[in-house]
Design a protein around this nucleic acid. Structure first.
Lengths: 246, 246
DNA sequence: CGCGACCTTGAAGAACGTCAATGGTCGTGG
DNA sequence: CCACGACCATTGACGTTCTTCAAGGTCGCG
Protein backbone atom coordinates (compact mmCIF):
# COMPACT_ATOMS: atom_id res chain seq x y z
CA UNK A 1 0.00 0.00 0.00
CA UNK A 2 2.06 2.87 1.31
CA UNK A 3 5.54 3.32 -0.10
CA UNK A 4 7.21 1.94 3.01
CA UNK A 5 5.34 -1.36 2.88
CA UNK A 6 6.20 -1.77 -0.78
CA UNK A 7 9.87 -1.09 0.02
CA UNK A 8 9.83 -3.83 2.62
CA UNK A 9 8.18 -6.14 0.16
CA UNK A 10 10.99 -5.52 -2.35
CA UNK A 11 13.51 -6.28 0.38
CA UNK A 12 11.76 -9.49 1.34
CA UNK A 13 11.52 -10.56 -2.27
CA UNK A 14 15.24 -10.02 -2.74
CA UNK A 15 16.18 -11.82 0.48
CA UNK A 16 13.88 -14.67 -0.42
CA UNK A 17 15.60 -15.08 -3.76
CA UNK A 18 18.83 -15.53 -1.82
CA UNK A 19 17.67 -17.63 1.12
CA UNK A 20 14.42 -19.49 1.83
CA UNK A 21 12.23 -17.81 4.43
CA UNK A 22 9.15 -19.08 6.24
CA UNK A 23 5.91 -17.11 6.31
CA UNK A 24 6.66 -16.18 9.93
CA UNK A 25 10.07 -14.84 9.07
CA UNK A 26 8.73 -12.84 6.16
CA UNK A 27 5.97 -11.41 8.27
CA UNK A 28 8.44 -10.36 10.95
CA UNK A 29 10.36 -8.43 8.32
CA UNK A 30 7.22 -6.87 6.88
CA UNK A 31 6.17 -5.78 10.37
CA UNK A 32 9.39 -3.84 10.94
CA UNK A 33 8.68 -0.25 11.92
CA UNK A 34 9.86 2.06 9.14
CA UNK A 35 10.23 5.78 9.36
CA UNK A 36 9.83 7.26 5.88
CA UNK A 37 11.64 10.38 4.77
CA UNK A 38 11.96 12.20 1.46
CA UNK A 39 15.41 13.50 0.63
CA UNK A 40 16.55 15.99 -1.97
CA UNK A 41 19.11 15.20 -4.64
CA UNK A 42 22.67 15.16 -3.42
CA UNK A 43 21.84 14.76 0.25
CA UNK A 44 23.68 12.22 2.35
CA UNK A 45 22.00 9.44 4.29
CA UNK A 46 25.06 8.74 6.44
CA UNK A 47 28.60 10.04 6.30
CA UNK A 48 32.02 8.55 6.85
CA UNK A 49 32.70 8.68 10.57
CA UNK A 50 29.03 8.53 11.61
CA UNK A 51 27.82 6.00 14.18
CA UNK A 52 24.38 5.06 12.91
CA UNK A 53 21.70 3.63 15.20
CA UNK A 54 19.47 2.68 12.31
CA UNK A 55 19.66 1.27 8.79
CA UNK A 56 18.20 2.79 5.68
CA UNK A 57 16.07 1.12 3.05
CA UNK A 58 15.86 2.64 -0.40
CA UNK A 59 12.17 3.00 -1.26
CA UNK A 60 12.28 5.06 -4.41
CA UNK A 61 15.20 6.57 -6.29
CA UNK A 62 18.90 5.78 -6.39
CA UNK A 63 21.55 5.79 -3.67
CA UNK A 64 25.32 5.79 -4.00
CA UNK A 65 28.04 4.50 -1.71
CA UNK A 66 31.16 6.64 -2.00
CA UNK A 67 34.39 7.86 -0.53
CA UNK A 68 36.32 11.07 -1.14
CA UNK A 69 40.10 10.86 -1.42
CA UNK A 70 42.66 13.44 -0.39
CA UNK A 71 42.59 15.67 -3.46
CA UNK A 72 38.79 15.77 -3.54
CA UNK A 73 38.26 13.09 -6.16
CA UNK A 74 35.33 10.79 -5.53
CA UNK A 75 35.06 7.05 -5.90
CA UNK A 76 31.58 5.60 -6.01
CA UNK A 77 31.65 2.01 -4.78
CA UNK A 78 28.09 0.97 -5.49
CA UNK A 79 24.71 2.15 -6.62
CA UNK A 80 21.58 1.10 -4.76
CA UNK A 81 18.09 0.70 -6.06
CA UNK A 82 14.72 0.30 -4.33
CA UNK A 83 14.65 -2.70 -2.01
CA UNK A 84 18.34 -2.36 -1.10
CA UNK A 85 19.53 -1.79 2.45
CA UNK A 86 22.96 -0.40 1.71
CA UNK A 87 24.04 0.20 5.30
CA UNK A 88 22.96 -3.07 6.85
CA UNK A 89 26.66 -3.37 7.63
CA UNK A 90 26.24 -0.71 10.32
CA UNK A 91 24.62 -3.44 12.42
CA UNK A 92 28.13 -4.80 12.86
CA UNK A 93 30.42 -1.86 12.30
CA UNK A 94 30.05 0.97 14.75
CA UNK A 95 31.72 3.64 12.61
CA UNK A 96 30.98 4.13 8.90
CA UNK A 97 34.12 3.97 6.77
CA UNK A 98 32.34 5.59 3.82
CA UNK A 99 29.29 7.70 3.02
CA UNK A 100 25.91 6.99 1.50
CA UNK A 101 24.11 9.62 -0.50
CA UNK A 102 21.27 9.81 -2.95
CA UNK A 103 21.47 10.75 -6.60
CA UNK A 104 18.10 12.35 -7.14
CA UNK A 105 15.14 13.18 -4.96
CA UNK A 106 14.45 9.88 -3.21
CA UNK A 107 12.27 8.28 -0.61
CA UNK A 108 14.13 6.42 2.07
CA UNK A 109 12.96 4.35 5.03
CA UNK A 110 14.78 4.12 8.33
CA UNK A 111 14.68 1.03 10.53
CA UNK A 112 16.28 1.04 13.97
CA UNK A 113 19.10 -1.37 14.73
CA UNK A 114 17.15 -2.35 17.79
CA UNK A 115 14.16 -3.65 15.87
CA UNK A 116 16.38 -5.39 13.32
CA UNK A 117 18.30 -7.13 16.09
CA UNK A 118 15.04 -8.19 17.66
CA UNK A 119 13.92 -9.85 14.42
CA UNK A 120 17.28 -11.59 14.06
CA UNK A 121 17.12 -12.83 17.64
CA UNK A 122 13.70 -14.36 17.13
CA UNK A 123 14.38 -15.60 13.61
CA UNK A 124 18.01 -16.70 13.24
CA UNK A 125 17.55 -17.61 9.60
CA UNK A 126 16.93 -13.97 8.83
CA UNK A 127 20.50 -13.36 9.89
CA UNK A 128 21.68 -15.92 7.34
CA UNK A 129 19.64 -14.22 4.64
CA UNK A 130 21.07 -10.82 5.48
CA UNK A 131 24.59 -12.24 5.59
CA UNK A 132 24.04 -13.75 2.17
CA UNK A 133 22.83 -10.40 0.90
CA UNK A 134 26.02 -8.68 2.05
CA UNK A 135 28.03 -11.43 0.37
CA UNK A 136 26.38 -10.58 -2.93
CA UNK A 137 27.27 -6.94 -2.34
CA UNK A 138 30.87 -8.01 -1.79
CA UNK A 139 30.79 -10.01 -5.02
CA UNK A 140 29.71 -6.85 -6.83
CA UNK A 141 32.60 -4.93 -5.26
CA UNK A 142 34.97 -7.57 -6.53
CA UNK A 143 33.53 -7.48 -10.01
CA UNK A 144 33.90 -3.70 -10.09
CA UNK A 145 37.52 -4.06 -8.97
CA UNK A 146 38.20 -6.36 -11.88
CA UNK A 147 36.70 -3.85 -14.26
CA UNK A 148 38.49 -0.81 -12.89
CA UNK A 149 41.78 -2.68 -12.65
CA UNK A 150 41.84 -4.67 -15.85
CA UNK A 151 39.24 -3.54 -18.37
CA UNK A 152 39.33 -0.51 -20.63
CA UNK A 153 36.79 2.30 -20.45
CA UNK A 154 34.56 0.84 -23.16
CA UNK A 155 34.25 -2.51 -21.42
CA UNK A 156 33.80 -0.94 -18.01
CA UNK A 157 30.93 1.23 -19.14
CA UNK A 158 29.24 -1.56 -21.05
CA UNK A 159 29.58 -3.81 -18.02
CA UNK A 160 28.10 -1.27 -15.66
CA UNK A 161 25.10 -0.69 -17.92
CA UNK A 162 24.50 -4.43 -18.19
CA UNK A 163 24.65 -4.79 -14.41
CA UNK A 164 22.30 -1.88 -13.90
CA UNK A 165 19.67 -3.22 -16.25
CA UNK A 166 19.95 -6.73 -14.83
CA UNK A 167 19.45 -5.54 -11.27
CA UNK A 168 16.56 -3.28 -12.23
CA UNK A 169 14.94 -6.23 -14.01
CA UNK A 170 15.08 -8.18 -10.76
CA UNK A 171 12.87 -5.65 -9.00
CA UNK A 172 10.59 -5.21 -11.98
CA UNK A 173 11.74 -1.78 -13.03
CA UNK A 174 12.52 -2.40 -16.70
CA UNK A 175 10.51 -2.40 -19.88
CA UNK A 176 12.18 -4.48 -22.55
CA UNK A 177 15.76 -3.62 -21.61
CA UNK A 178 14.94 0.00 -20.97
CA UNK A 179 15.22 1.70 -17.59
CA UNK A 180 14.67 5.05 -15.95
CA UNK A 181 17.75 6.25 -14.09
CA UNK A 182 19.05 9.50 -12.64
CA UNK A 183 22.65 8.43 -13.31
CA UNK A 184 24.74 11.15 -14.91
CA UNK A 185 27.89 10.63 -16.94
CA UNK A 186 29.73 12.18 -14.05
CA UNK A 187 28.34 9.48 -11.72
CA UNK A 188 29.47 6.80 -14.14
CA UNK A 189 32.92 8.36 -14.23
CA UNK A 190 33.19 8.42 -10.44
CA UNK A 191 32.08 4.81 -10.27
CA UNK A 192 34.51 3.55 -12.88
CA UNK A 193 37.58 5.62 -12.09
CA UNK A 194 37.35 7.70 -15.27
CA UNK A 195 36.93 11.35 -16.16
CA UNK A 196 33.53 12.69 -17.15
CA UNK A 197 34.80 13.73 -20.56
CA UNK A 198 36.14 10.32 -21.34
CA UNK A 199 32.89 8.68 -20.29
CA UNK A 200 31.10 11.05 -22.60
CA UNK A 201 33.24 10.09 -25.57
CA UNK A 202 32.81 6.38 -24.95
CA UNK A 203 29.07 6.67 -24.42
CA UNK A 204 28.89 8.33 -27.79
CA UNK A 205 30.79 5.44 -29.31
CA UNK A 206 28.27 3.03 -27.82
CA UNK A 207 25.47 5.14 -29.24
CA UNK A 208 27.13 5.32 -32.64
CA UNK A 209 27.45 1.53 -32.68
CA UNK A 210 23.73 1.43 -31.88
CA UNK A 211 24.30 -0.57 -28.73
CA UNK A 212 22.37 1.85 -26.54
CA UNK A 213 20.05 4.83 -26.61
CA UNK A 214 20.39 7.23 -23.75
CA UNK A 215 18.38 10.42 -23.57
CA UNK A 216 17.85 12.20 -20.28
CA UNK A 217 16.72 9.67 -17.71
CA UNK A 218 15.86 6.98 -20.19
CA UNK A 219 18.46 4.36 -20.98
CA UNK A 220 17.62 1.65 -23.50
CA UNK A 221 19.80 -1.27 -24.50
CA UNK A 222 19.38 -1.78 -28.23
CA UNK A 223 21.71 -4.72 -28.66
CA UNK A 224 21.94 -6.68 -25.44
CA UNK A 225 24.14 -9.45 -26.77
CA UNK A 226 26.72 -7.10 -28.21
CA UNK A 227 26.76 -4.96 -25.10
CA UNK A 228 27.28 -8.04 -22.96
CA UNK A 229 30.15 -9.05 -25.17
CA UNK A 230 31.79 -5.63 -25.11
CA UNK A 231 31.53 -5.57 -21.32
CA UNK A 232 32.37 -9.25 -20.84
CA UNK A 233 29.25 -9.33 -18.70
CA UNK A 234 28.55 -12.65 -17.01
CA UNK A 235 25.87 -12.21 -14.31
CA UNK A 236 27.11 -15.20 -12.29
CA UNK A 237 28.50 -12.85 -9.64
CA UNK A 238 25.02 -11.47 -8.95
CA UNK A 239 23.92 -14.91 -7.73
CA UNK A 240 20.52 -14.46 -9.22
CA UNK A 241 18.54 -17.66 -9.24
CA UNK A 242 20.96 -20.39 -8.52
CA UNK A 243 20.20 -23.31 -6.29
CA UNK A 244 20.90 -22.53 -2.68
CA UNK A 245 23.20 -24.19 -0.18
CA UNK A 246 21.39 -25.23 3.04
CA UNK B 1 50.71 -27.57 18.99
CA UNK B 2 50.39 -28.88 15.46
CA UNK B 3 50.09 -26.36 12.66
CA UNK B 4 46.35 -26.90 12.26
CA UNK B 5 45.59 -26.08 15.88
CA UNK B 6 47.67 -22.92 15.67
CA UNK B 7 45.81 -21.95 12.50
CA UNK B 8 42.50 -22.31 14.28
CA UNK B 9 43.85 -20.27 17.16
CA UNK B 10 44.73 -17.44 14.77
CA UNK B 11 41.23 -17.61 13.34
CA UNK B 12 39.64 -17.52 16.78
CA UNK B 13 41.84 -14.63 17.82
CA UNK B 14 40.79 -12.67 14.76
CA UNK B 15 37.08 -13.44 15.18
CA UNK B 16 37.30 -12.54 18.85
CA UNK B 17 38.76 -9.17 17.99
CA UNK B 18 35.66 -8.58 15.87
CA UNK B 19 32.94 -10.09 18.05
CA UNK B 20 32.92 -11.29 21.66
CA UNK B 21 32.85 -15.09 22.02
CA UNK B 22 32.26 -17.24 25.07
CA UNK B 23 34.67 -20.00 26.09
CA UNK B 24 32.19 -22.55 24.76
CA UNK B 25 31.98 -20.90 21.40
CA UNK B 26 35.73 -20.63 21.11
CA UNK B 27 36.17 -24.26 22.08
CA UNK B 28 33.66 -25.34 19.45
CA UNK B 29 35.73 -23.55 16.83
CA UNK B 30 38.98 -24.99 18.10
CA UNK B 31 37.49 -28.49 17.99
CA UNK B 32 36.62 -28.21 14.31
CA UNK B 33 38.09 -31.09 12.33
CA UNK B 34 40.78 -29.78 10.00
CA UNK B 35 42.39 -31.65 7.18
CA UNK B 36 45.87 -30.24 6.59
CA UNK B 37 47.48 -30.15 3.18
CA UNK B 38 50.70 -28.69 1.83
CA UNK B 39 50.44 -27.02 -1.55
CA UNK B 40 53.13 -25.92 -3.99
CA UNK B 41 53.55 -22.38 -5.23
CA UNK B 42 51.03 -21.35 -7.84
CA UNK B 43 48.51 -24.08 -7.11
CA UNK B 44 44.83 -23.25 -6.78
CA UNK B 45 42.73 -24.01 -3.73
CA UNK B 46 39.43 -23.54 -5.56
CA UNK B 47 38.61 -22.28 -9.03
CA UNK B 48 35.92 -20.13 -10.53
CA UNK B 49 32.96 -22.38 -11.24
CA UNK B 50 33.76 -24.90 -8.49
CA UNK B 51 31.12 -25.96 -5.97
CA UNK B 52 33.09 -26.40 -2.78
CA UNK B 53 31.88 -28.60 0.06
CA UNK B 54 34.52 -27.29 2.45
CA UNK B 55 36.25 -24.06 3.40
CA UNK B 56 39.97 -23.49 3.54
CA UNK B 57 41.98 -21.93 6.33
CA UNK B 58 45.39 -20.47 5.57
CA UNK B 59 47.85 -21.98 8.06
CA UNK B 60 51.16 -20.85 6.67
CA UNK B 61 52.04 -18.84 3.57
CA UNK B 62 50.03 -16.45 1.43
CA UNK B 63 46.87 -16.93 -0.61
CA UNK B 64 45.43 -14.75 -3.35
CA UNK B 65 41.86 -14.23 -4.55
CA UNK B 66 41.78 -13.52 -8.27
CA UNK B 67 39.89 -13.49 -11.53
CA UNK B 68 41.15 -13.75 -15.09
CA UNK B 69 39.56 -11.50 -17.70
CA UNK B 70 39.01 -12.21 -21.37
CA UNK B 71 42.42 -11.30 -22.71
CA UNK B 72 44.24 -13.25 -20.02
CA UNK B 73 44.98 -10.37 -17.70
CA UNK B 74 44.65 -11.12 -14.01
CA UNK B 75 43.10 -9.09 -11.25
CA UNK B 76 44.00 -10.05 -7.70
CA UNK B 77 41.21 -8.99 -5.36
CA UNK B 78 42.77 -9.82 -2.02
CA UNK B 79 45.72 -11.40 -0.33
CA UNK B 80 45.22 -13.75 2.60
CA UNK B 81 47.52 -14.46 5.47
CA UNK B 82 47.56 -17.17 8.15
CA UNK B 83 44.34 -17.24 10.17
CA UNK B 84 42.21 -16.13 7.21
CA UNK B 85 39.37 -18.23 5.82
CA UNK B 86 39.10 -16.67 2.39
CA UNK B 87 36.29 -18.87 1.07
CA UNK B 88 33.95 -18.79 4.04
CA UNK B 89 31.57 -17.27 1.51
CA UNK B 90 31.17 -20.70 -0.09
CA UNK B 91 28.94 -21.54 2.88
CA UNK B 92 26.35 -19.34 1.21
CA UNK B 93 27.27 -19.29 -2.44
CA UNK B 94 27.10 -22.61 -4.19
CA UNK B 95 29.31 -21.67 -7.16
CA UNK B 96 32.59 -19.79 -6.82
CA UNK B 97 32.66 -16.62 -8.92
CA UNK B 98 36.46 -16.36 -8.63
CA UNK B 99 39.50 -18.47 -7.82
CA UNK B 100 41.75 -18.82 -4.80
CA UNK B 101 45.38 -19.75 -5.21
CA UNK B 102 48.54 -19.65 -3.20
CA UNK B 103 51.60 -17.53 -3.86
CA UNK B 104 54.35 -19.73 -2.48
CA UNK B 105 54.49 -23.18 -0.95
CA UNK B 106 51.82 -23.02 1.75
CA UNK B 107 50.06 -25.09 4.36
CA UNK B 108 46.31 -25.01 4.16
CA UNK B 109 43.59 -26.56 6.33
CA UNK B 110 40.25 -27.75 5.03
CA UNK B 111 37.08 -27.69 7.14
CA UNK B 112 33.86 -29.23 5.85
CA UNK B 113 30.80 -27.05 5.39
CA UNK B 114 28.92 -29.63 7.38
CA UNK B 115 30.98 -29.20 10.52
CA UNK B 116 30.95 -25.42 10.17
CA UNK B 117 27.17 -25.41 9.86
CA UNK B 118 26.92 -27.62 12.91
CA UNK B 119 28.95 -25.14 14.97
CA UNK B 120 26.81 -22.26 13.72
CA UNK B 121 23.62 -24.14 14.55
CA UNK B 122 24.73 -24.77 18.11
CA UNK B 123 26.34 -21.37 18.59
CA UNK B 124 24.43 -18.69 16.71
CA UNK B 125 26.81 -15.96 17.80
CA UNK B 126 29.54 -17.64 15.80
CA UNK B 127 27.50 -16.83 12.73
CA UNK B 128 27.49 -13.16 13.71
CA UNK B 129 31.26 -13.26 14.15
CA UNK B 130 31.77 -14.84 10.75
CA UNK B 131 29.39 -12.37 9.15
CA UNK B 132 31.34 -9.53 10.69
CA UNK B 133 34.56 -11.03 9.34
CA UNK B 134 33.19 -11.06 5.80
CA UNK B 135 32.08 -7.45 6.28
CA UNK B 136 35.68 -6.49 7.02
CA UNK B 137 36.74 -8.31 3.86
CA UNK B 138 34.18 -6.27 1.95
CA UNK B 139 35.54 -3.08 3.49
CA UNK B 140 38.98 -4.04 2.19
CA UNK B 141 37.54 -4.61 -1.29
CA UNK B 142 36.03 -1.15 -1.17
CA UNK B 143 39.29 0.43 -0.06
CA UNK B 144 41.12 -1.27 -2.91
CA UNK B 145 38.49 0.02 -5.34
CA UNK B 146 39.13 3.54 -4.16
CA UNK B 147 42.84 3.09 -4.69
CA UNK B 148 42.61 1.52 -8.12
CA UNK B 149 40.00 4.00 -9.25
CA UNK B 150 41.26 7.25 -7.84
CA UNK B 151 44.86 7.06 -6.62
CA UNK B 152 48.05 7.09 -8.67
CA UNK B 153 50.49 4.20 -8.75
CA UNK B 154 52.72 5.65 -6.02
CA UNK B 155 49.86 6.03 -3.55
CA UNK B 156 48.38 2.66 -4.45
CA UNK B 157 51.61 0.81 -3.78
CA UNK B 158 52.32 2.70 -0.57
CA UNK B 159 48.78 1.96 0.60
CA UNK B 160 49.05 -1.73 -0.13
CA UNK B 161 52.32 -2.03 1.74
CA UNK B 162 50.85 -0.24 4.73
CA UNK B 163 47.86 -2.54 4.75
CA UNK B 164 50.03 -5.61 4.44
CA UNK B 165 52.24 -4.68 7.36
CA UNK B 166 49.26 -3.69 9.51
CA UNK B 167 47.50 -6.99 8.93
CA UNK B 168 50.67 -9.00 9.53
CA UNK B 169 51.17 -7.10 12.78
CA UNK B 170 47.72 -8.23 13.91
CA UNK B 171 48.74 -11.88 13.73
CA UNK B 172 52.15 -11.26 15.21
CA UNK B 173 54.19 -11.71 12.05
CA UNK B 174 56.20 -8.49 12.04
CA UNK B 175 59.41 -7.36 13.63
CA UNK B 176 59.56 -3.60 13.94
CA UNK B 177 57.70 -2.83 10.69
CA UNK B 178 59.47 -5.57 8.79
CA UNK B 179 57.75 -8.62 7.29
CA UNK B 180 58.55 -11.76 5.33
CA UNK B 181 56.43 -12.02 2.22
CA UNK B 182 56.47 -14.02 -1.01
CA UNK B 183 54.78 -11.15 -2.89
CA UNK B 184 56.42 -10.36 -6.22
CA UNK B 185 56.23 -7.08 -8.06
CA UNK B 186 54.11 -8.90 -10.57
CA UNK B 187 51.63 -9.83 -7.82
CA UNK B 188 51.48 -6.21 -6.72
CA UNK B 189 50.83 -5.17 -10.30
CA UNK B 190 47.95 -7.65 -10.66
CA UNK B 191 46.47 -6.48 -7.38
CA UNK B 192 46.65 -2.79 -8.21
CA UNK B 193 45.75 -2.82 -11.88
CA UNK B 194 49.23 -1.83 -13.03
CA UNK B 195 51.96 -3.30 -15.20
CA UNK B 196 54.91 -5.06 -13.59
CA UNK B 197 57.37 -2.61 -15.11
CA UNK B 198 55.57 0.37 -13.70
CA UNK B 199 55.41 -1.19 -10.26
CA UNK B 200 59.14 -1.76 -10.50
CA UNK B 201 59.83 1.86 -11.29
CA UNK B 202 57.65 3.14 -8.47
CA UNK B 203 59.11 0.69 -5.95
CA UNK B 204 62.51 2.04 -6.83
CA UNK B 205 61.27 5.54 -6.18
CA UNK B 206 60.05 4.47 -2.75
CA UNK B 207 63.43 2.90 -2.10
CA UNK B 208 65.27 5.99 -3.30
CA UNK B 209 63.19 8.14 -0.95
CA UNK B 210 64.23 5.71 1.81
CA UNK B 211 60.64 4.89 2.63
CA UNK B 212 61.16 1.14 2.31
CA UNK B 213 63.80 -1.54 1.97
CA UNK B 214 62.80 -4.58 -0.02
CA UNK B 215 65.23 -7.38 -0.74
CA UNK B 216 64.00 -10.82 -1.70
CA UNK B 217 61.28 -11.84 0.76
CA UNK B 218 62.11 -9.20 3.31
CA UNK B 219 60.16 -5.98 3.23
CA UNK B 220 60.98 -3.30 5.80
CA UNK B 221 59.22 0.02 6.24
CA UNK B 222 61.86 2.61 7.04
CA UNK B 223 59.61 5.62 7.35
CA UNK B 224 56.15 4.55 8.40
CA UNK B 225 54.70 8.03 8.75
CA UNK B 226 55.80 9.14 5.31
CA UNK B 227 54.63 5.92 3.70
CA UNK B 228 51.23 6.31 5.35
CA UNK B 229 51.05 9.83 4.03
CA UNK B 230 52.04 8.89 0.50
CA UNK B 231 49.42 6.12 0.51
CA UNK B 232 46.78 8.13 2.38
CA UNK B 233 46.56 5.09 4.62
CA UNK B 234 43.94 5.30 7.34
CA UNK B 235 43.39 1.87 8.89
CA UNK B 236 39.83 2.65 9.98
CA UNK B 237 38.48 0.37 7.26
CA UNK B 238 40.23 -2.62 8.84
CA UNK B 239 38.04 -2.23 11.94
CA UNK B 240 40.90 -3.22 14.17
CA UNK B 241 40.14 -2.54 17.79
CA UNK B 242 37.11 -0.37 17.88
CA UNK B 243 34.31 -0.79 20.33
CA UNK B 244 31.75 -3.28 19.15
CA UNK B 245 28.05 -2.95 18.53
CA UNK B 246 25.93 -5.55 20.42
C1' DC C 1 76.78 -24.45 -13.56
C1' DG C 2 72.87 -23.69 -15.75
C1' DC C 3 68.00 -22.84 -15.63
C1' DG C 4 63.89 -20.46 -14.31
C1' DA C 5 61.83 -16.82 -11.89
C1' DC C 6 62.20 -12.36 -10.92
C1' DC C 7 63.94 -7.72 -11.32
C1' DT C 8 65.62 -3.84 -14.14
C1' DT C 9 66.12 -0.60 -18.01
C1' DG C 10 65.00 2.08 -22.15
C1' DA C 11 62.24 3.76 -25.88
C1' DA C 12 57.97 4.47 -28.11
C1' DG C 13 53.08 4.68 -27.99
C1' DA C 14 48.17 4.43 -26.37
C1' DA C 15 44.63 5.43 -23.31
C1' DC C 16 43.00 8.51 -20.61
C1' DG C 17 43.16 13.06 -17.99
C1' DT C 18 43.01 18.10 -17.78
C1' DC C 19 41.70 22.54 -19.20
C1' DA C 20 38.72 25.58 -21.32
C1' DA C 21 34.68 26.60 -23.72
C1' DT C 22 30.05 26.00 -25.64
C1' DG C 23 25.48 24.39 -25.93
C1' DG C 24 21.13 21.94 -24.07
C1' DT C 25 17.54 21.15 -21.11
C1' DC C 26 14.63 21.56 -17.30
C1' DG C 27 12.61 23.48 -13.29
C1' DT C 28 11.64 27.71 -11.07
C1' DG C 29 10.29 32.20 -10.23
C1' DG C 30 9.11 36.70 -12.00
C1' DC D 1 4.58 32.77 -20.60
C1' DC D 2 9.20 33.69 -20.69
C1' DA D 3 13.76 34.44 -18.75
C1' DC D 4 17.15 32.81 -15.79
C1' DG D 5 20.21 29.80 -13.54
C1' DA D 6 21.86 25.27 -12.51
C1' DC D 7 23.24 21.17 -13.96
C1' DC D 8 24.55 18.30 -17.50
C1' DA D 9 26.35 16.93 -22.07
C1' DT D 10 29.65 17.92 -25.57
C1' DT D 11 33.89 19.31 -28.11
C1' DG D 12 38.76 20.25 -29.05
C1' DA D 13 43.59 20.77 -27.92
C1' DC D 14 47.09 19.32 -25.33
C1' DG D 15 49.49 16.69 -21.36
C1' DT D 16 50.69 12.86 -18.69
C1' DT D 17 50.56 8.60 -16.60
C1' DC D 18 50.96 4.29 -17.50
C1' DT D 19 51.47 0.34 -20.99
C1' DT D 20 53.85 -2.31 -24.29
C1' DC D 21 57.71 -4.30 -26.29
C1' DA D 22 62.23 -5.79 -26.17
C1' DA D 23 66.37 -6.63 -23.95
C1' DG D 24 69.40 -7.60 -20.36
C1' DG D 25 70.71 -8.66 -15.61
C1' DT D 26 70.58 -11.04 -11.07
C1' DC D 27 69.68 -14.42 -7.76
C1' DG D 28 68.62 -18.80 -5.75
C1' DC D 29 68.34 -23.51 -6.34
C1' DG D 30 68.56 -28.19 -8.30
Amino acid sequence: MSADRSGLRSLVRKLESLHPLTADEKQALLDLPVQVRDLDAGQDIVREGDRPSRCCLVLDGFAQRYKIVGDGRRQIMSFHIPGDMPDILSLHMAVMDHSLGILSRSRVGFISHESLREVIRRHPRVESALWRDTLVDAAIFREWMVGIGRRDARARIAHLLCELVTRMELVGRTESKSVQTPLTQNNIADALGLSTEHVNRVVQELRAANLITWQGRTLAINDWDSLKEVGEFDPAYLYLSQEQPP
